[in-house]
Nucleic acid binder design. Structure first.
Lengths: 242, 242
DNA sequence: TGCCCTATCAAACACGTGTTTCAATCGCCT
DNA sequence: AGGCGATTGAAACACGTGTTTGATAGGGCA
C-alpha cells in the first residue's frame, strides 16, 4: 500500500488479502481455535508488539517466534498494520473472556472493595511481565504512542473500564461533581500506569523494586488507600469546573 | 561503528569524531553561545527526539529542521547516539538554568504550598506543547522507553526532583514511613505523568479536554488537593513494608 | 599570494525493513 | 492414484535508514 500503487495484479495478488476470511469460513472449525500458524502468529505478534511497540516490532522476529516463514504474515493477514489491528481485536477477545472483574464482584459489594479489586487486577495485568499477559501491556503501549488502532482500543477497551471506575467513584462519594469524578479517575489510573510507563526509571530510582506478585499487591493496596482517603474528602474541595 | 569494523582509517576518519572538542576549545568564544549549525542541530534534534522518540527520529528530518546537510550530524557529533546524549546534556543545562523552582520557593514556605508549586511546574513543563519546552518532554519520553542516556537522565534529572518531592512529603506528614514516602511520591508523579503518557487516549475519552494553560492549572490544583488529603491520612494506614 | 584547517555539500554505500514472487509441498476430495 | 486449492518456503525487490566519501568552498596566517 506504500509502494508504487501495486503495479501487478497477477490474479493471485488480488485474491491473497481475502484468503484469510475465506479460509476461516470454509475449511476449519469456525473460530480461532485451531493451533495453526495463523494463531501462532497472533500470539507471537502480541508479545512482540507489546514489548517492542508497533514501529519497532519487526515481522521477521514475529515469524521467528511463531516458527513461521516471513511470508506467512503477508499471506494470512496481508499487512503488518492489519496484523496489528487483528492482534488488538484478539487481545480484546482474550481479555474479556478470562476477566472475572465484572462477574466476581457483585453489584452488592461495597464500593471500597470494588475499587480495591479494580486497582489490583489492573496492576496485575500490567505489571507481571513473565506470563503471557501481553494484552494489557499492548493496551498501555498503544495508549502511550497512538498506533493504528487507537480509536478501536479506546472505544471497546479503555472506555468501559474507565466508566466502571467512575461508577465506583460516584458510589464512593455521591457528592462528587462530574468533573471531579473524571479527575479522580485519571488520578487513580495514573497512579497505576506509572509503574508500567516509567518502570525503567523506577527500578533505577529504587533498586530493590522487584514488582513481583507480592509487591504489586502491596502497591495496589497503597494506591487503593491513598485514593480512598482522597476521594472521601474530595467533595470538600472546589468544583474544579473547566 | 556498526559497519564492517571501519575498513579505512583515511586519516580524516580517525580525526573527525574529535573535531567537535577541538573546534570548541580553539576558535569560537568558549561556550555553546554561537548560533552555528552545531547549535541549530542540537535544538532541532531536541524537538524531533522529543516528539518522535529516539528510534523514530530520523537524522534527515533533524537536518532539514536545522537547515543543515545530512552529513552535518556525522561531522559535528559523529553519531546519532552521541547526538542524542549531547541533546540530553543540553536539555539538562537549559532546564537547570531557567528553572526557578528551587529559588522561588524558600525553605520557609509551608510544605503544602511547596507541593502545589512542584506539581504545577511539573505539569506546565510536560503539558504545554506549543512552546519550545521539549526538555521535559524529552525526559518523559526517555523515561517511557529506555534509550541510550537513561542512566544519565535518572542520575542528574529525575533523582533530584524525586528527592525534593520526598522531602516535601516528609515535612507534610512526619509520621510517614520511608516506604510510604516513596509510594506517595510515585502516586503524585504518576498522577501528573498520565496527562503526558496517555494524552491521545484522554483526549478521545474526554473530547473537551484542551490541556491549555488554564486547564493545566486546574488539573494541578486537583492533583495537589487529592494528594494533600491522602498524604495527611497516610500515617493511619499500614506500614506498606516490602 | 599560497597554504592549511574547518565546515558544508551532493552523492553514494551498507544494511534492515515490509512486501512480493514463484516454486514446492501438504491435505483433502473424487 | 490424480488433481487441485490451501499453505509454506527461500529468494528477491523496493525503499528508508544511518553513515561515509570525496570534492568544494571559506578564512585566517605565514
Amino acid at each position: 500500500m506504500n509502494r508504487t500503487a501495486t503495479p501487478r495484479p497477477t490474479t493471485r495478488s488480488a485474491i491473497r488479502p481475502g484468503v484469510r476470511i475465506d479460509a476461516k469460513s470454509s475449511g476449519k472449525p469456525d473460530e480461532a481455535s485451531d493451533h495453526g500458524t495463523r494463531d501462532r502468529l497472533l500470539d507471537a505478534a502480541g508479545e512482540v508488539f507489546a514489548d517492542r511497540g508497533y514501529e519497532q516490532a519487526t515481522i521477521r522476529e514475529i515469524c521467528r517466534r511463531a516458527e513461521a516463514n516471513i511470508a506467512a504474515v503477508s499471506y494470512h493477514f496481508g499487512d503488518k498494520r492489519t496484523l496489528y489491528i487483528e492482534v488488538i481485536a484478539y487481545a480484546h477477545r482474550c481479555a474479556d473472556e478470562y476477566d472475572p472483574s465484572q462477574e466476581a464482584v457483585s453489584d452488592a459489594t461495597p464500593p471500597a472493595d470494588r475499587l480495591r479489586h479494580f486497582i489490583l487486577t489492573f496492576m496485575q495485568r500490567i505489571g507481571l511481565k513473565g506470563r503471557p499477559a501481553w494484552h494489557a501491556r499492548l493496551m498501555a503501549r498503544e495508549m502511550a504512542s497512538p498506533g493504528a488502532a487507537l480509536d478501536h482500543v479506546v472505544r471497546s477497551g479503555v472506555r468501559p473500564k474507565f466508566e466502571a471506575l467512575q461508577i465506583i467513584l460516584r458510589r464512593l462519594n455521591p457528592r462528587l461533581g462530574e468533573r471531579q469524578v473524571e479527575l479522580c479517575a485519571c488520578s487513580i489510573v495514573g497512579q497505576c500506569l506509572i509503574y508500567y510507563h516509567a518502570r525503567p526509571v523506577l527500578s533505577r530510582l529504587f533498586p530493590n523494586l522487584r514488582l513481583d506478585a507480592r509487591e504489586i499487591g502491596q502497591i495496589a493496596d497503597h494506591i487503593t488507600r491513598f485514593s480512598l482517603d482522597a476521594v472521601a474528602l474530595a467533595h470538600l474541595r472546589g468544583d474544579d469546573r473547566p
